[in-house]
C-alpha cells in the first residue's frame, strides 16, 4: 500500500500540476501530432464526402457541388437492387472468408504446435502470405485461375481429372469461389501465427491436471485450450477487421466485379460509380455505408477482445 502511494505522488500528472500549470498537459502535446495528421488526412476528407453525399456532385461538372439535394442519394442507393445485392454479397463474402480463415488458422496452429522437428522453418513459411500485397495476390490468382494458361486448369487436365477447361473466373459461382480462395490464402496466416503464439503461451499445469483427471483430448481442447486462445483469436479478428476492405484490391484485379456483376462487392461498386461514372456524390453515399460496415466489424471485435481480456485477467493486472 505504501509503495502504491509513493508511485502516485511521483507520477507525472501529479507533479506537473505544481510546476507547469500554464503549459498544455503533456499527454496532449504527445498526442497532438497524431490528432493533427488524422484530422488532416482522414477527418477533413470525410466531412467533405459527407457533404458531397447530399449533392449530385459529378467530377465532370464541378458546379453541381453546390446544389443541395438532401438525402436523395441515400434514397437512391437504398432502393437500388444492385446496391443491396452487392451489400449482401459483401456480408456473405466476409462471413465465409473470416470463418474459413479462423477455422484453417486454428487447424494449422494446432498441427504446427505438435511438430517437433523444423518448427521454426514451418513458422517462417507460414508468415509468407502476410508479406504479399493484396493486389499481388489478386494477380497471382488471376494467373493461376486463368482458364486457358492457368496452373489450376493445366494441373487438372494433366492429372486427367477434368477434360474441359474450368471457367474459374468466368462462371459466376466459380468466380466467387476463386476470390474467396484468394482472400483466405492471403489472410489465414495472420490467424495461424497469432493462435500459434497463444498456444506457446498456454500454462502447462491445467493441461497436465486435465490429463491426470482423465479428460479426453476433445474435452481438454474445448474447456482449457480454446478459452485461453480466445483473446488471441480476437486480436487476429480485430487486426483483420481493420482492413476488411483490402479484399477490394483482390476482387478489382481478379474479376473487376464481373462476370455480369456476380462478384460485385460494395467496394468495387463504389469505385466504379465514383471513378468510371464520375458520380462522386452517389459514390460517397455508398462510401458511408461501407464505412459504417467496417466500423461495425471493428467495434464488435474490439468489444469481444476487451471482454476476453478481462475474463483472463489481463485487463488491469498488468
Amino acid at each position: 500500500m505504501a509503495k502504491h502511494l509513493r508511485v502516485f505522488r511521483h507520477s507525472p500528472e501529479h507533479r506537473k500540476k505544481g510546476t507547469m500549470r500554464r503549459r498544455l498537459p503533456e499527454w496532449f502535446v504527445l498526442l497532438l501530432p497524431a490528432f493533427i495528421i488524422m484530422a488532416a488526412v482522414v477527418l477533413i476528407p470525410l466531412v467533405f464526402s459527407l457533404y458531397s453525399s447530399f449533392t449530385p456532385y459529378k467530377l465532370t461538372r464541378p458546379s453541381t457541388l453546390w446544389r443541395w439535394i438532401g438525402t436523395a442519394n441515400y434514397e437512391k442507393i437504398l432502393t437500388d437492387v444492385k446496391f443491396w445485392a452487392a451489400f449482401g454479397r459483401t456480408i456473405l463474402f466476409l462471413t465465409i472468408a473470416l470463418n474459413l480463415e479462423l477455422l484453417f488458422g486454428l487447424l494449422i496452429a494446432l498441427m504446427v504446435n505438435k511438430v517437433t522437428l523444423g518448427q521454426r522453418t514451418i513458422r517462417t513459411i507460414l508468415m509468407f502470405p502476410m508479406m504479399f500485397s493484396p493486389i499481388l495476390v489478386g494477380f497471382q490468382f488471376k494467373f493461376i485461375f486463368n482458364d486457358n494458361i492457368g496452373l489450376a486448369n493445366n494441373a487438372l487436365q494433366a492429372l486427367g481429372i477434368s477434360d474441359a477447361a474450368m471457367p474459374w473466373l468466368v462462371d459466376g459461382k466459380l468466380a466467387m469461389f476463386s476470390i474467396i480462395f484468394a482472400e483466405v490464402w492471403m489472410s489465414t496466416s495472420v490467424f495461424a501465427v497469432l493462435i500459434l503464439a497463444g498456444l506457446f503461451a498456454i500454462p502447462r499445469d491445467p493441461l497436465e491436471a486435465a490429463k491426470v483427471d482423465g479428460c479426453t483430448a476433445w474435452q481438454t481442447f474445448r474447456h482449457i485450450t480454446l478459452p485461453f486462445l480466445m483473446p488471441f483469436i480476437f486480436i487476429a479478428m480485430t487486426i483483420r477487421s481493420l482492413d476488411v476492405a483490402r479484399a477490394y484490391d483482390i476482387v478489382q484485379i481478379m474479376t473487376g466485379g464481373g462476370p455480369a456483376g456476380r462478384t460485385e462487392l460494395i467496394w468495387t461498386l463504389m469505385s466504379r460509380t465514383g471513378y468510371v461514372d464520375a458520380r462522386m456524390g452517389l459514390a460517397n453515399a455508398m462510401g458511408y455505408v461501407s464505412i459504417l460496415l467496417s466500423i461495425a466489424f471493428t467495434v464488435y471485435f474490439f468489444k469481444k477482445l476487451s471482454a476476453a481480456r478481462s475474463e483472463l485477467g489481463f485487463g488491469d493486472k498488468i
Binding site: N284, M286, I291
Partner: peptide, 8 residues
C-alpha cells in the same frame, strides 16, 4: 476503407 477514403 481505403476505397471510400480515396474518393474525397
Amino acid at each position: 476503407p481505403g476505397v471510400a477514403l480515396s474518393l474525397p
